[in-house]
Design a protein around this nucleic acid. Sequence first.
RNA 1: GGCGACGUGGUGAAGUGGCUUAACACGGAGGUCUGCAAAACCUCUACUCGGCGGUUCGAAUCCGCCCGUCGCCUCCA
Length: 470
Amino acid sequence: MTLRLHDTLSGETRPLEPLTPGFVGIYSCGPTVYGPVHIGNFRSFLFADILVRYVRYRGLRVKWVMNVTDVDDKIIRGAAAAGVGIGELTERWTDRFLTDARILGMTDPDVVPKATEHIPQIVALIEELSRRGHAYRTDDGSIFYQISSWPGYGRLARLDPENMRVGERVESDEYGKDDVRDFALWKGPKRGEPSWSTEVGEGRPGWHIECSAMSMTHLGQTFDIHTGGVDLIFPHHEDEIAQSEAATGKEFVRTWLHCAFLQMAGRKMAKSAGNIARVDELLERGTPPRALRYALISVHYRMALAFSDESLAAAASAVERLDNVLAALDSYSEEREDDPSLDDVLANGRRSFEEALDDDLNVSGGLAAVFEVVRELNRRIGARSLSTADARRAADFLLDLDRVLGVMSAPTRKLESDVADLLEQRAAARAARDWAASDRLRGVLADHGIAVEDTRDGQRWRRVGEPSRA
RNA sequence: GGCGACGUGGUGAAGUGGCUUAACACGGAGGUCUGCAAAACCUCUACUCGGCGGUUCGAAUCCGCCCGUCGCCUCCA
């Protein structure tokens, strides 16, 4: 069994067959950094993260490239409004994006290219398109891609160019277009806007061209997987294909993966709709980061995901269940022979997990497999039928699957000295059967964010709301 | 107007022809364990998969129609 993925372009779900055996190149459309990224955006980044983690779990090497768009209309407007240069604005929000991503346990991409650092590559691509007759220049110094020169246009989005509704508004800088559907490769210089002096003239890159240039620069003219939200299918990815394939004459991307929307209050989460939630504000409200990650990854990526306070609370409880079993396994100790049936439980669990993830990254199914093992482990912990070594093996097993999920927390043995003191005092009180003191100390520890439980393996503690270990 | 996706319990959702008289998680009810609590475990919580027809020995799963929701065709993860 191998990983099968649903390709948007062909509409088929087919096995991942890397261009280079053992190596997968993945490009993910990242954020435009003009403000904080909301959790709807993060859903699509975390979906790519799961993909990367699972491909690596499967033993393949991955080069993951996620771009940052650091020059566009919104950035220019935002910088002007804030009275700062665009570099200052984009640096601030890029840092913030990467910080939030780490809080959510997202794997660091191998390369995070920026549009402004790829101007030569972008220009070279535009020149090639001009040479091949796919681009034309307008009076204001802009360069447009000529859609009519590319017969495959509309294939990805399944749109018939003839039937496309064309927006009524035609911006002044696009006035000279041959066809309103043509899109800008290069925008001519304007007062108050950043501009580069290049072989194709003064100006700045259009949006779509940067992703073609950056992905091909870092992954080659043809690469394995390109990801993004479904809203990028058209026009962004459609345009990327048109540009890239027209310029190289080669297939651009082997597999296109698109993540469905995160919905809140029955609508897609979008800045324009005003129904957005941000990482920092959720954290301020006391949301454990791993619970947020769980809430965003636990549903299949091609299904709309309903986000709400309730779904977040349910995710937090599920994550706690995982923490609890890991803590129980960690403190478990029993002098006895190994449980002969444990291997089967773990092997079956792993098989179910992999079958689900192989099936176009069915995370829900994978989680079901994990929780089935968790229940089985809890039974054995209660029955004291595991050996101490079994308990270690079981914990290692769960943490191994968590290389893909990134929602668990390995119990830490490290404690602040004051907390360690309190735990010792409580253990002493319990030994003396001083229940009043024991209960009081439990309350004090809770104030330190430490939950204490009494088990057959003695006092057990865990932190409430630990960050992801990823 | 064109194109597409989805509609499963109190909630979030797996499942896409027989293994499912529907997984997993959350929530709820009862019980076991425990000094108490928590955790955990056990039992129960959809005789049913938007509606109506059809195909089939057999359908939540395939087909048709209808209803509803969301989305794309414009910046958007």
